[in-house]
Amino acid sequence: MAEMAQKHANVPLEYSTKQNQLNILGFWIFLGAEFALFATLFATYLVLVPRTAGGPGPEELYELKTVLIETFLLLTSSFTCGLAVYEMRRGKKTGMIGWLIVTILLGAGFLYFEIEEFILYAVHEGATMQTSAFLSSFFTLVGTHGIHVTIGIFWIIFIILQVLKRGLNADTARKVFISSLYWHFLDVIWIFLFTLVYLTGMVS
């Protein structure tokens, strides 16, 4: 009995109820489906990338500097999001909120550079969604990821507000943990955008 209680004392809040465990499992199933969603967009892009219809191609548009800035902003935000969950598991609410705020700011920085990149393409280089099959699939793929980041930012903001109002309990801890899974997942997708869209586009 005593041993069980001790085991339980060491279980993180987000895993402390059966319902929470099921919710977290459910979110992993959702992430599996998201893999399939992004796979279809990646497949479309990679098939259509040579179809530039006389418009600008990847090697004329992509710039390593912008892409690297975006990559490091999102990678660092994923790291700070991990630190937020780490602080939560140490029972440090303030530390957790602090790292979540840093995560949101880095995510917003990423979005700023991405929107600037899109405006540069569309307004200054005449590369819009209507220009070619390559650009339609490019904006759909990268834009879908960008929308996910935007949703993630608002989601985490609302969760921070809820933690401030209700404190850290089994429910709010689960919400922080699940939103952190979502945020890390966005970086997983970005790794493949960075590699399969940008690096590959600049090489060939």
Binding site: Q21, G32, A33, F42, H184
Partner: peptide, 29 residues
């Protein structure tokens, strides 16, 4: 390391889900 994929009571299920997702993704792409 960041998402603790193998952790929790359902760790092996979570990992299975993701491996299956990756399998589907590779097949599609």
């Amino acid at each position: 390391l960041f998402m603790h994929m193998n952790e929790g009571a359902n760790g092996s299920w979570q990992a299975t889900m993701i491996y299956y997702g990756i399998y589907i993704a590779i097949v599609i792409v």
